Structures are given as C-alpha cells and as structure tokens.
Amino acid sequence: MNLDPDLDLGLERIIRAPRATVWAAWTDPSRLKRWWVPAPSHCRVDRLDLRPGGAFVTSLSDDGTTFVPHMNACFLAVDEFERIVFTNAIDSTWRPASPAPVAMTATITLSDHPGGTNYRTVVRHGTPEARDHHEKLGFAEGTGTVAAQLAAVAEGMR
C-alpha cells in the first residue's frame, strides 16, 4: 500500500471470501447498506451508480427511521473485481463540494490472497491538516469497524 504519511490514511485486511463475493458486497445496494456505516447506525443507499462519473449517495440513521445525509460522492474509477475510487470533493451531480468532516478521495483495491481477498483502503487528503483531522476523528476505528462488517457480510455470502 503506497501511502504518503503526510496526506494519506490506510487500512488493509484479509477477508475470507473470494474477490467476486467481496465485490458483490460492495456493489449490491442491499448488501452495502448492511456494512457501510458502523453499527448500531443504519445506512440507506440512495444512489449507487457504479461507473466513472456515477453517483454514490448514502444516508445515515441512528434509529433506523430518521435518515440524514451521510455521503454524497462521485465515482472516479471502477475496475470490476479490482478497484473502486470515489471522492466526496465532487458531489453526485458533479458540483464542487466542501464535505464535512473532510474532503477526501478513497481507493479500494481487491486482490487475490491464499486466505481469500486482500482488501485495501487508501484515503487521500489535500493537506496534512485534513489528514490529521480525519485521523483524530477516528478514521482507524471507524474504517476498521466497517471493514470488519464488510468481512462478516462477504464471509456469510458463501
């Protein structure tokens, strides 16, 4: 994982499921909503247009009924079974955005591993301050929780 220590944050883990299964957990809205936000919060997938320029919009709820905006992003690259790149610096309608808590570009890569799938996330930030802010907000804990939830969904799909 190539990280710029001043600008990037990352996570890597092995998911005990084939790449196609992990890909399906990422690209099927009914599966994505099960792991995309840390439990006990709930996710609603409002738009998932998985293609370069496509929309990635989700909402978040603490009670499962009242949803608020969570992610309004744009896919930059989609390489089936291998890579997904999205940014919240451009919203789903291609407008420049100033997202809270921080603007970022995320690259998700999937590769074969003897134990299943090597799942890697690299989150790039525009400034060291933005990277540090994201880290202090709990990037490692939140991303780790979400990756564990993804693993549970993918590993249960066999």
Rank of each mutant, 00 (worst) to 15 (best):
N2C: 00
N2D: 02
L3A: 12
D4P: 06
P5Q: 03
D6I: 00
L7E: 02
L9C: 00
G10N: 05
G10K: 04
E12F: 00
R13V: 10
R13P: 01
I15Y: 13
I15C: 12
R16H: 14
A17V: 11
P18M: 07
P18G: 03
P18A: 04
R19S: 08
A20K: 14
V22M: 07
W23T: 02
W23P: 00
A24H: 10
A25E: 01
W26Q: 06
T27L: 13
T27Q: 10
P29G: 07
S30Y: 01
S30I: 00
R31T: 02
L32H: 04
L32F: 07
K33Y: 02
R34T: 06
W35S: 00
W35Y: 10
W36D: 02
V37A: 07
P38S: 10
P38I: 05
A39Y: 07
A39N: 11
S41R: 05
H42A: 07
H42L: 04
H42G: 01
H42P: 02
C43N: 07
C43L: 04
R44H: 14
V45S: 05
D46Q: 13
L48G: 08
L48E: 09
L48K: 10
L48A: 12
L50M: 15
R51M: 11
R51Y: 11
R51T: 08
G54Y: 08
F56L: 13
T58K: 03
S59A: 13
L60E: 06
G64F: 14
G64W: 11
T65A: 14
T65E: 12
P69I: 12
P69G: 15
H70Y: 13
M71T: 15
L76E: 15
L76M: 14
V78T: 10
F81V: 06
E82S: 10
V85A: 06
T87S: 09
T87D: 06
A89L: 06
I90L: 14
D91R: 03
W94A: 12
P96C: 03
P96Q: 06
A97Q: 12
A97K: 11
S98D: 13
P99V: 05
A100G: 09
A103E: 12
A103S: 15
M104E: 06
T105F: 04
T107Q: 11
T107R: 09
I108P: 00
I108Q: 10
L110N: 08
L110M: 13
S111V: 03
S111N: 04
G115I: 04
Y119E: 03
R120D: 02
R120M: 04
T121E: 14
V122I: 15
V123G: 00
R124Q: 10
H125Y: 08
H125E: 05
G126K: 01
G126V: 03
G126C: 01
G126Q: 05
T127R: 11
P128E: 06
E129N: 08
R131V: 02
R131Y: 11
H134G: 00
E135D: 10
K136V: 14
K136A: 15
L137W: 05
G138H: 06
G138P: 02
F139W: 04
A140S: 06
E141A: 15
E141T: 13
G142E: 13
T143F: 12
G144K: 02
T145N: 08
A147Q: 03
Q149I: 01
V153K: 02
A154F: 13
A154T: 11
A154D: 12
M157W: 08
